[in-house]
Computed example of a mutant assay.
Amino acid sequence: MHLFRRAVDRLANALAQPKNEFLRDSAIQRFEFTFELAWKVLKEYLELQGLEARSPKAAIRGAFQVGLLPEDPGWLEMLELRNLTSHTYDEALAERIYGELPNALERFRQLLQRLEEVEGEDT
């Protein structure tokens, strides 16, 4: 979870900077690896619950199922955004993805908070 927390902080830092093309592209890349860490944290959590998640979509749905995440369609929308990030050479698409990053950051922060709550319940 430490790596995920650090990735969330780095994404937040990128989004706090004045926007330019370089920063936009950097923030999108930070979103990519933050999303990758998020779904892997979900996968790990589900495995501890005795469940299996072999894909990001399965991990998100599993997290909904066990109540780790609220049933928020924004998580599945983030997965779609993540799948589009390889096409950021398209300026309009890069702008669209960048525009969604503050919402993604908020979801990542909520997940971190929820994981900390659950971790506290286990101790």
Rank of each mutant, 00 (worst) to 15 (best):
G50P: 15
H2P: 12
R114H: 03
V8M: 03
L81F: 12
L115N: 06
W75L: 08
L69D: 07
D122T: 11
S26K: 11
F4R: 10
L81A: 15
L115H: 09
A104N: 07
A7V: 05
K57L: 10
R61M: 05
P18V: 06
R107D: 07
L42I: 04
Q17D: 06
M1H: 13
E47M: 11
D90P: 07
R114N: 02
L69C: 06
L48H: 09
V41M: 12
V41L: 11
A94G: 10
P102L: 01
F4N: 06
L112T: 11
P70E: 14
R30C: 05
E119L: 11
E21Q: 13
A53G: 05
E121L: 15
G99N: 06
N13E: 13
K19T: 12
R61S: 08
A63K: 03
E100V: 01
E106R: 14
L93V: 11
W75G: 05
F22Q: 09
Q29R: 14
L46Y: 05
I97Q: 14
G120Y: 02
R30H: 08
V118T: 09
P102W: 00
L115D: 04
Q29I: 01
L81G: 02
L23E: 08
S86D: 09
P102R: 01
E100F: 11
F22M: 13
E91Q: 14
L68H: 03
Q17Y: 01
A27P: 12
W39G: 03
L23Q: 14
F64N: 06
G120C: 10
E117A: 04
N20A: 03
E91Y: 06
L11P: 11
F35T: 00
D72W: 02
E91N: 10
E106G: 02
A92F: 07
L93M: 13
L93C: 05
A59H: 03
V118S: 08
P70M: 03
R82Y: 01
M78F: 13
E100P: 08
G120D: 12
D9Y: 00
R109P: 04
Q29W: 08
Q113N: 11
P18K: 14
R114E: 13
G74F: 07
V66R: 02
E44C: 02
R24S: 03
E80H: 15
P70V: 10
E100M: 14
Q110A: 15
Q29A: 01
Y98C: 10
Y45L: 04
E77N: 08
E52Y: 10
V8E: 08
R109G: 09
Q29E: 10
T123H: 07
E80K: 15
A38T: 15
H2Y: 11
F108K: 01
L81K: 12
H2V: 15
V66S: 06
Y98L: 12
L93I: 06
N103R: 13
A92P: 05
A7D: 14
K19N: 04
D122S: 13
P73S: 12
R107H: 06
M78N: 09
L42R: 01
K43A: 08
L84Q: 15
E52N: 11
E95N: 15
L23T: 01
R82K: 05
V41C: 12
V118K: 15
F4L: 14
A92V: 04
K57G: 05
A53V: 02
L76K: 00
